[in-house]
Design a protein around this nucleic acid. Structure first.
Lengths: 329, 329
DNA sequence: TATCCACGAGAAAGCCTTTGCCGACCTGCG
DNA sequence: CGCAGGTCGGCAAAGGCTTTCTCGTGGATA
């Protein structure tokens, strides 16, 4: 802090332009000059001010990473992947927690004030007008884990297909009475997974019921499953999220039910925790690394061509067989 | 993007200074002028460029949030608290994932290039020279969850005391043969908790053994406890972290041991998950909200007075009694 | 009505960097 | 030895904003 380009120029006895050029990749500087400047810079402990640089280059390398899922452990994995992926490409994530924000427009405003080049929204639900506000501001937005709209770049999975996959799996394992436990009813992920699940189950001769937990959380899953168990229940449930499944699993165990013998459970995500020995959840794997790097790719594509049409990139899921569903019959 | 102060000034037919003043809190502008400028700004969709502003004000409101704990679920809680706390105070976190970074000096360099005003390091282990590099650059550094050194602002708990508390609790519950399961041996948290635990246990007539898991993770805890159970074992273990405890718990269950009857377990952190019904871990509560807001406070204090002496702020912990320790005897 | 004061507006310099343009120097060749 | 061509460094402007200084205006007071 404090040591500027001019200081280095002065010390090295050269012009400011010369110093600038030695610090910009691909500029033409003689080896002698470069050595001289670098020596001076070294001695002074200089490093260029990226914020000032951005003024003329119009490149900040800043990216907004926006989410409101700070309670579902899977998002720690997701943040890990995003931060690593962005760092590898020289981008810097400005983390925005939307949880308590009543007015998302304020976050949009703030991100624009910091001249972010792109924004990655990692939520199933994107607040209205969010994407448009950024597009109008010339900021690349990618919606990770969202529902395709054709208006915005979206990267994720086909949630309808995932629901179908769950239903097919349950039927194939010999379950007939199937239940779907969603997260919040408004969440597009819940809606789409339910739609796919119900359609496929019916098509295969299954009987389907469904209900919703209040949140994508352990407690919501536990409470909802406890409620369900008080009534005539399904033979197997598809919970729309792993953490929900773990709550449901806990409720089943508390009720003295054997899983998978008395009750089958299948989740979705395949978060690390699903593999924990005391959980051992059969679940649908969502390819997080592909989604994350796909999202970053799409964002960078848009840096290159701000006017290209919106793209949707969906990756295939697969079943990870563990201990909460009985074996193929 | 693209609409600048000058554009607004032109549109409103006033000087650029007038526009600037309208957007600077506490500047003197007549009501009439303000209205006129705001109308023009509104119409053009102008909002000030904070990066350009920072050039003259030397205030970026940018803060580095640095961590390498993207695998312990408790850190999602911590990130949640930090992002909210920073946002509330108008600060913006630049998230840095140190996990894969071979050379932390690069991160220091990068954060300085972005002119962050402060850095919060949320790790038990702060890479050498990290703090000094920032201090030399005039950047406020606070080490959250660290070990007090007197050189750097540190906020956290007294890990030695926490170890003592664990020992006292186990002895009070009638356990005599005690075990300590740490995380990585080099981690200061592990070292301090072990020291306090061992000293207090011996002082109270307990017999203590200890070992270390390779990481603060479920799997490391499970593996280590599995290993321990193959030998004559202690009656109760203090695991230096909740996620480690959960791994240990899983190993105990897998071995057919009843907890807390055959084996007592106490963790540390009191992360949300510890309260999950199927885990129900007795643990030492670490007051995260106090620590997080204390860290931000300390950082802001240092903004105000860069030369004040380093402070250490430690918060008290308490036991949260759940199901993995037998009741007071 | 004249004087003074305070407040607000404008002009210009400054923050740190990049970049287009031009001129100087050097190299190599005829 | 002279010239053409190329390389490289310096100058100055630009980029978006703030801030100080100065000056003018309006209102209040005597």
């Amino acid at each position: 802090m404090g040591v500027t380009l001019s200081d280095v120029a002065l010390k090295a006895g050269v012009s400011r332009a010369a110093v600038s050029r030695t610090f910009t990749a691909g500029a033409s500087v003689s080896a002698k000059m470069r050595a001289r400047v670098e020596a001076a810079a070294q001695e002074l402990g200089y490093s260029p001010n990226l914020l000032a640089r951005s003024l003329t280059t119009r490149k900040t390398q800043l990216v907004g990473l926006v989410s409101n899922n700070f309670h579902n452990p899977v998002f720690l994995q997701i943040f890990d992947l995003f931060t690593k992926g962005l760092q590898e490409r020289g981008l810097r994530p400005l983390l925005v927690n939307l949880s308590d924000e009543t007015d998302p427009a304020r976050s949009v405003q703030m991100l624009r004030q910091y001249s972010v080049e792109g924004v990655i929204v990692a939520t199933s639900h994107l607040p209205d007008g969010f994407a448009r506000a950024f597009r109008d501001g010339g900021v690349a937005v990618v919606h990770a884990f969202g529902r395709p709209t054709g208006q915005t770049d979206v990267v994720g999975i086909d949630n309808v297909a995932a629901g179908q996959m769950a239903a097919q799996t349950l039927i194939a394992r010999g379950y007939r009475h199937l239940g779907f436990m969603g997260g919040p009813e408004q969440a597009s992920t819940t809606q789409d997974r339910l739609a796919g699940f119900t359609a496929a189950a019916r098509a295969l001769g299954g009987v389907v019921s469904h209900s919703f937990a209040g949140a994508y959380s352990f407690e919501a899953g536990r409470v909802e499953m406890t409620r369900l168990l008080a009534h005539p229940r399904a033979e197997a449930y598809f919970c729309a999220d792993d953490v929900l499944s773990i709550g449901a699993l806990s409720a089943a165990q508390a009720a003295g039910l054997g899983v998978p013998d008395d009750l089958g459970l299948i989740g979705l995500n395949d978060m690390h925790m699903a593999a924990w020995a005391n959980i051992n959840l059969t679940t649908i794997h969502q390819p997080f690394d592909a989604i994350v790097s796909g999202a970053i790719d799409l964002m960078q594509d848009r840096f290159a061509d701000p006017n290209r049409a919106a793209q949707t990139r969906l990756f295939p899921c697969h079943i990870v067989d563990r201990g909460t569903l009985r074996a193929q019959s």
